[in-house]
Amino acid sequence: MRRTWWIYLIGVLGLVAVAAPFAWMVLGSFKTQGELLRVPPTWWPEQPTGQNYADLFSKANFPRYFLNSTLVALAVTAGNLTFCSMIGYALAKLRFKGRNALFVLVMATLMIPGMVTFVPLFVLVTNAGMANSYPGLILPFLVSPFGVFLMRQFFSGLPDDLMDAGRVDGSSELGIFARIMLPLTRPALATLGILTFLGSWNNFLWPLVIAQTENMYTLPVALALYSKGQNAQNFGLLMAGAVVVVVPVLVMFLVFQRHVTKGIAITGIK
């Protein structure tokens, strides 16, 4: 019994260490500039102000960045759910020439850094007239090797008998995929959906290169550029901006956390 309390104490101290920067962010976002610079710092805002959040609208265009991030993340998620489940099923359950080669090829790209592809991608997208546009932000991320891997793993675990039963009933191969097998992958789709959305929301390098005018910025791009430019010393604005970037994904994660951790365990162990 005595052993457990200090284990919990360590655990709680760990939680405090993890949570402290987030708490610092939220508290800071309600402080005035003068209070943020005070030494020693204050903990609780002495005169809580909503000015920093108001500045997100007046000094910057955060609603627009929020909209951009949301639109891009939704489109990227929809694309991954559709296309990765299609090819994942083909790789797991259909026999066709080149199946293994295709799978190996896709997996080989799993560890390719984004740094390797972004320059030619930039040239391609610019010449296709899609620089600084939603298609330019979205199209390169509509499929991902990770999504293919996750969906293939999940489809592999479903019994072939279900497909045979569909064939006996006279379903077409596409019908078997769409009506019998796909609905059974709902847990995997949930995992892929949430992970893709989070990944897109936090994506930085590509939107940084391809969003050239302010109206196309996503939230991380806007936050990063504001933290360097004339607002670099406007701590309150940056804290409020960080809250806007972080809090939606934290809420989303807390709601769907079971899918996230399960997905990591599935793809991590197998």
């Binding site: 920067p21 710092p41 989070l198 930085f204 701590f235 951790t261």
Partner: peptide, 29 residues
């Protein structure tokens, strides 16, 4: 488990902005 995992899902950019203040010389956490 969820608590320790929280930072993983957040934007590195936002984390970096926050940590700049956490590590500030005089007024930092």
């Amino acid at each position: 488990k969820v608590g320790y995992y929280l930072p993983v899902v957040t934007s590195i950019v936002a984390i970096a902005v926050i940590w700049r203040f956490v590590l500030a010389p005089d007024s930092g956490l």
